[in-house]
Amino acid sequence: MSSRVPPDIAEIERALSRVAHMLTRFRQHDRTVVAAGVPVDRAAVPLLRVLAEEGPMRPGEMAARLAVEAPHVTRQLQRLEAAGYVERVPDPDDRRCLRVTLSRAGADAVESIRASGRRWISDALADWSPDDRERLAGLVHRMVDDFEAHSGSRDAETARN
């Protein structure tokens, strides 16, 4: 591979780094959850979102889906269960196992977090045209899909070697 990086690739990497930094700052999370009225750790939000999007699942499935270690998921789920945001229910496919599902409070919390985030995005992009916002959404989805596909091919390549 050439050591020369095309300028557009370097600029995309720079922009993604800026976005990642901005979205993962503690203050941004704190503002979002305070505005949403949902006092949860930053690490718990992806768990709530995946349950809202994909439905009940086993903790191990959540860890795999989020590409994090299982003990991390277990700790977060314990906190979310104590706060009343998730519940453990029997797995219909294997009664020896449990799945995690959102409680009513958890579903409300996810919707509040989403609404807070959408307000923030709407305010930040208020000067953008609807066409530009639609184009951005399409390109971001395309980029994530391509990144996921490429990541999967890299995982398969690593497993072969």
Rank of each mutant, 00 (worst) to 15 (best):
M1A: 13
S3R: 12
S3Y: 09
R4Y: 11
P6Y: 04
P7H: 12
D8V: 15
D8W: 05
I9L: 15
A10P: 02
A10V: 05
A10T: 03
E11S: 12
E11V: 05
I12P: 00
I12E: 07
E13K: 09
R18A: 10
R18G: 00
V19A: 14
A20L: 14
A20K: 15
A20M: 14
H21R: 15
H21L: 13
M22K: 11
M22V: 09
T24C: 06
T24F: 10
R25Q: 13
R25F: 04
F26P: 04
R27G: 11
R27A: 13
D30I: 07
R31N: 10
R31D: 13
V33Q: 04
A35L: 08
A36K: 00
V38Y: 02
P39T: 01
P39W: 02
V40H: 03
V40T: 08
D41R: 15
R42G: 06
R42N: 10
V45M: 10
V45W: 01
R49E: 07
V50L: 04
L51E: 01
A52H: 10
E54I: 01
G55F: 05
P56G: 06
P56S: 10
M57D: 03
P59A: 09
M62W: 02
A63Y: 03
A63S: 09
A64F: 04
R65Q: 07
L66C: 08
L66V: 06
A67Q: 15
A67P: 04
A67S: 15
V68W: 02
P71G: 03
H72M: 13
T74E: 06
L77D: 05
Q78G: 13
L80T: 02
A82R: 15
A83D: 06
G84C: 02
Y85D: 01
V86C: 01
E87T: 05
E87I: 07
V89E: 12
P92I: 00
D93L: 12
D93S: 12
D94R: 13
D94W: 06
D94P: 01
D94E: 09
R95H: 10
R96T: 11
C97P: 00
C97D: 14
C97V: 11
R99P: 00
V100K: 01
V100A: 07
V100W: 00
L102V: 02
S103F: 08
G106V: 01
A107Y: 07
A109F: 03
A109P: 00
V110F: 06
E111M: 08
I113P: 00
R114G: 00
R114F: 08
S116C: 05
R119Y: 05
W120N: 02
S122H: 11
D123M: 04
A124R: 13
L125D: 07
A126N: 03
W128F: 15
P130R: 04
P130I: 01
P130F: 01
P130S: 04
D131L: 04
D132G: 03
D132K: 08
R135Q: 08
R135C: 01
A137I: 11
L139E: 07
L139F: 06
L139D: 08
V140Y: 09
H141N: 09
R142T: 15
R142F: 09
M143S: 11
V144I: 13
D146V: 14
F147C: 10
H150S: 14
G152R: 10
G152T: 10
S153G: 02
D155L: 14
A156I: 07
A156Y: 05
A156Q: 11
E157S: 13
A159D: 08
A159R: 12
N161H: 15
